[in-house]
Amino acid sequence: MDKYGSGQDPYCYEGTSTLRNLLDIHDDKTLEAAERELTLLAAEAIQFSPPPYDLAYLQELHRQLFGDLYPWAGQIRTIDISKGETRFCNVQRVEPETHKLFSHLAQNDDFTNLKRNRLVTAIAELYGDLNVIHPFREGNGRAQRLLFEHIVINCGYEISWDGIDQQEWLDANIAAYYCDYGPMTAVFERSIGQPLDEVIT
């Protein structure tokens, strides 16, 4: 699990880096395993929905994924966070910056009119920029990937994360943080598949 921030984190049990949780688990590895299992089950139950794709939609996905584990699931974080040398968006700018990105998506018809090559690029850039914001205290990656599955499906394409290893994914996100979208574009080039109408027929 990622460990964020410094000093006493109000989201964690006092004197620890373990996130407070509804199961009252105090061991990081046990919590990580519980989180993995619960979110896998939750993800299977979440149905695709059409636009609008906005912050409220992302919050609802996060709530459904993590609601059985964290009392703050679906809520915007209240503290600044970082991971290693990466500092994510200032907490006061999370909502306005997120709204900017989703407004761009809506103004461009949710990318539904883009040819596949341009769609791959646009999706990669949007993913990288939204990841820099990191609106939640934990679980940003899982909620965001699910959101982007819905965006891509709405554009009429298959999407699968199979074959994308953890290090490649991490490197792509770090590169995108510095506005180098090449590695993230390569990830989505492999993740976005055939048009759904071709798959169905």
Rank of each mutant, 00 (worst) to 15 (best):
G5S: 10
S6K: 13
C12K: 05
L22K: 10
L23P: 00
L23Y: 11
D27G: 00
E37C: 06
T39G: 02
L41I: 14
A42M: 05
A45M: 06
Q47S: 14
P52W: 02
Y53I: 08
Q59E: 14
Q59R: 15
H62Q: 09
H62V: 01
Q64F: 04
L65V: 03
F66W: 08
D68L: 11
P71E: 13
W72C: 05
R77Q: 06
I81N: 05
T86W: 06
R87T: 15
R87D: 15
C89E: 15
N90T: 07
N90E: 13
Q92C: 07
P96W: 00
K100G: 03
H104V: 14
Q107T: 09
D109T: 13
D110R: 01
L114Q: 09
R116I: 11
T121Y: 11
T121V: 06
E125P: 00
E125C: 10
G128F: 07
R137W: 06
N140P: 04
R142C: 07
Q144L: 14
R145I: 03
N154F: 12
N154S: 10
S160T: 14
D171M: 10
D180R: 02
E189R: 01
I192P: 04
Q194M: 08
Q194C: 12
D197F: 12
D197I: 08
E198N: 04
